[in-house]
């Protein structure tokens, strides 16, 4: 595992880190580029600067882990990369598209086509079956019902849960639910998968299975994965590990 921690705000260092992926292959094209990104929240009149002039580049096809103490800004950074939130200053470009110039509606559409989400607590809809949960993002497309079902089953097959397609979340273990969530994340074939503590609620064995699956998605399907984690064992699976503290890369 190559720990690619970088000098704060140093684009050159980040670029160097991006190239130092575990696979050691040739440098990949930059997929995600953050330039002088700042994010400030307001608690009443008090401004809380969560990210400060952050420069960062993530190569296409990377599996990156973001680590850091609580309040360091890693989830905020993940939200910005995923297009869930907008920067206060600076810009974020993904595949050349500037997210910071998009409206909320445009970002929602962009997310539905480019980002798959994996959450710590799975966040499946309890009244839907595994297949229906996976099919959910496809409702935003113009695909016919039969095609949506077919793709949902394909995604479930990728995560090894095709035979559980008709089970509801409460009939699945935590690890299985997270695999369904991963199937939901990949069903639209997004470029990027963002994972927020994907193993945080799982036992070690289940966590290892999930991490194996993420590695597989990264290596075999070429998905770029950005994962926030506190778990060193999870971070070990990533090709690049970045650490944040007080809103800056360390």
């Amino acid at each position: 595992m190559s720990d690619a921690s970088t000098t704060p705000t140093s684009t050159a260092a980040n670029t160097a880190a991006n190239t130092a992926v575990k696979s050691g292959g040739a440098a990949a094209a930059t997929l995600i580029r953050l330039s002088q990104v700042g994010k400030t929240y307001y608690r009443g009149k008090e401004a809380v600067e969560v990210l400060k002039n952050l420069d960062l580049e993530m190569p296409d096809g990377a599996f990156e882990a973001l680590m850091g103490p609580s309040g360091s800004g890693k989830s905020t950074l993940l939200n910005l990369i995923a297009g869930l939130d907008n920067v206060t200053s600076g810009s974020i470009q993904i595949s050349g598209v500037d997210l910071s110039r998009m409206s909320e509606g445009e970002r929602a559409k962009w997310r539905s086509q480019n980002v798959g989400f994996i959450f710590q607590t799975y966040n499946l809809m309890p009244v839907l079956t595994a297949a229906e949960n996976v099919e959910l993002p496809l409702l935003l497309t113009s695909l016919p019902s039969a095609e949506r079902k077919k793709r949902a089953l394909t995604a479930l097959r990728v995560v090894g849960l095709e035979e559980r397609a008709s089970h509801r979340p409460d009939q699945l273990s935590g690890g299985q639910q997270q695999r369904v969530a991963i199937a939901r994340a990949i069903v639209t074939d997004p470029k990027i998968i963002v994972a927020d503590e994907p193993t945080g609620d799982l036992d070690r064995a289940s966590a290892d299975q999930i991490l194996e699956l993420l590695v597989k998605l990264n290596k075999e399907l070429g998905k770029t994965i950005v994962m926030v984690t506190h778990d060193p064992a999870a971070a070990e699976r990533a090709s690049i590990v970045r650490r944040l503290d007080k809103g800056q890369l360390t």
Binding site: Q113, F117, L136
Partner: peptide, 13 residues
Amino acid sequence: THEYGVLRAIGFM
């Protein structure tokens, strides 16, 4: 509320 957040995250308007 959290679930609506998830739906919004995956692209629902």
